[in-house]
Design a protein around this nucleic acid. Structure first.
Lengths: 124, 124
DNA sequence: TCCATGTTCAACCGAAGGGTTGAGAATGCC
DNA sequence: GGCATTCTCAACCCTTCGGTTGAACATGGA
């Protein structure tokens, strides 16, 4: 099922989970490596990852013993579209809209780790 | 204090609160009028409005007996900025936005299709 | 002044959230 | 096979959340 906005925003409301997303922006990671910088149990991180996966924010793929986590920004995109409707509803920036259309028509980029984010996402 | 991303995303994670924001997109509303289309108590709606105000998503101003609620999209923009680290969605897709508005308004967020609020503009 | 209207407060309730611990279940390596 | 590594499951604990109800507070109008 497609993750709902409920699930997406709830997943984003926890600072640990946002930090995990920021880490995954750099590279795909195994569960143990995701958990390493946090001062909480591995089981807790595992739960957080399940929540992120249910929200469609990450994908998890098991290779051997190791489960790899990678960012999946489509859900974020949905939520962003919903939000930006409030900020720019009165005055639509036509230039920005045209730029959006271009990115819409462009081939969907595979969410690889080598994506140049340009600017690091703010932490908490 | 500036509302944290925790607070903002948590406020957005509830369908009732997102429906309220959508309603306020049309016009400023009094608390009673906000509560009218929902099948829950006025006190519950009042709590939701407090949560939205604490998140900086709405502002509340009391004139006489009536407390008017109005959208305050700055907090949304802040959260939107955080998200932009994860992808390139700097522009708004109006079609997608309308789609989301429909999916938000249609199912269970608002009980009846006859949401003839009929509220008056705050200035008078 | 008395009463209706608009909104919040306080106490409560059940469910969900975020954390722990300990016991598994897979898998890879010797 | 035996063992370490990786990750999840299950049971619990405590707090927060979303809702209710009834009372209270504040204001405007007769």
């Amino acid at each position: 099922m497609a993750p709902s906005l409920d699930t997406i925003f709830a997943a984003l409301s926890d600072p640990t989970r946002r930090a995990i997303l920021t880490m995954l922006l750099e590279d795909d990671m195994a569960v143990t490596d995701v958990a390493e910088p946090f001062e909480m149990s591995l089981a807790a991180i595992s739960k957080h990852l399940v929540i992120l996966a249910n929200a469609g924010l990450i994908a998890q793929e098991k290779r051997g013993r190791v489960k790899w986590c990678k960012l999946q920004p489509d859900a974020l995109r949905e939520a962003s579209v919903w939000m930006q409707g409030f900020g720019q509803f009165e005055a639509i920036n036509l230039d920005a809209f045209e730029r959006f259309l271009e990115t819409e028509l462009a081939p969907a980029a595979l969410p690889g780790p080598d994506e140049d984010a340009g600017e690091e996402a703010p932490g908490r």
